[in-house]
Design a protein around this nucleic acid. Sequence first.
DNA 1: CGCAGGTTTGAATGTCGTCAAACCAAGTGG
DNA 2: CCACTTGGTTTGACGACATTCAAACCTGCG
Lengths: 216, 216
Amino acid sequence: MCAVLTLAELRTFAENARRSSHEPGDHLMLEDSELTSYANVTGGIVKLSRVMRDGRQQLVGLQFAPDLLGRLFGTENKVTVEAASPVDICRVPKHVLEALVSSSPELKQRLLDQSLQDLDEARDWMVTLGRKDAQQRVASLMMLIARRNGVEEIDSGRGAAFDLPLTRADMADLLALTVETVCRQISKLRKDGVVGIRNHRRVTVPDMSRLSARAG
Amino acid sequence: MCAVLTLAELRTFAENARRSSHEPGDHLMLEDSELTSYANVTGGIVKLSRVMRDGRQQLVGLQFAPDLLGRLFGTENKVTVEAASPVDICRVPKHVLEALVSSSPELKQRLLDQSLQDLDEARDWMVTLGRKDAQQRVASLMMLIARRNGVEEIDSGRGAAFDLPLTRADMADLLALTVETVCRQISKLRKDGVVGIRNHRRVTVPDMSRLSARAG
DNA sequence: CGCAGGTTTGAATGTCGTCAAACCAAGTGG
DNA sequence: CCACTTGGTTTGACGACATTCAAACCTGCG
């Protein structure tokens, strides 16, 4: 989700917002004080997941700062919202947001655009989960993170560097693999010289086009 | 996607619509006469898919009648739209739909709600693709089709019957399996007495709760 | 009947998951 | 400063499940 607010809207937003910080693993139920409150991620990364009856979970989305979090007039479908890194958020009560939306058709339009974009991203990820092997999935995730870190010139042979903001377990939940398989594929990318890894977190990519090729 | 139009809106819709029929396999590009025209599926089933560079495809959604098809102010992301069965659709030019939307905030609201629901469904399917084995995926698809055919009392031990509107190949593309694996799992469900199959298409379920249990 | 497309079944292969153990990095307290 | 602990990470051996390749089988239709 991308930022969709104008400056004036952001001001109203900020005046009614309450800030809070959270540690990795904290659950950020959106139904805190008011049902279906809205929140803005101002720092860190939030993971959205669904849990199966047997306890296994599947991440269904990531929210990077400064993404919008939550949903209008919420549906019944439960998504677990959890901090993946240290996270700062900024909540707005339901009625404030509803007022904002009804006074601004453009805002509603942008919320619509954004949810359509989220839908596109979800469908992209369905292809990753359904049709890519372990190597391609791991490479795809690295491409996603690189893009979110401002790396643009994907196929130009340029290099890049970024931190992995997720644990191996979170990556596994997102990619529908096991922790061990994620590790093995990262090791393989490293052995093949596609990426360099320092401290299990810092990734350096000498040539983005080679990583892109591995992503299928 | 569900129907989101009132009767009055449907009238305007119908007055400006052009109907057409299509055979299985036909591509229903929405950019026919006008870019990003909208359409209503009045009969049959439409599949939405993404194609990978190597030619393999992944279905990312199904549209049953009377679902709405297409999207407002379309994004750049290409989805292949194809008839899965004999299909009747009813197209509306872009400007008519835009007029409808701007004259009706409720319509825009409902489009927003609907896209949020689509997002939920896409995320549900991500769990199916990511975390279920072949047997559970096939059972999940049968549950989905049963629900779309009006079967409601899922866990009441009631029976049901419906046609599979997709070929084995389409099921495989939707479930991210091979045709052979889909066949084997259907055969297993049949041998175990969970479903009955006639002519490769007609499914009878003596006890929906047993099928539901197989779906994970 | 006989063809064509879709479907079903079988046997062999390979990829990923499971189980187990070792490894590393960071923080704590002696 | 170093031993110790803890949580996360990495690697290996083995097995299970889905894919691949191949052949046979239905069903509808000319």
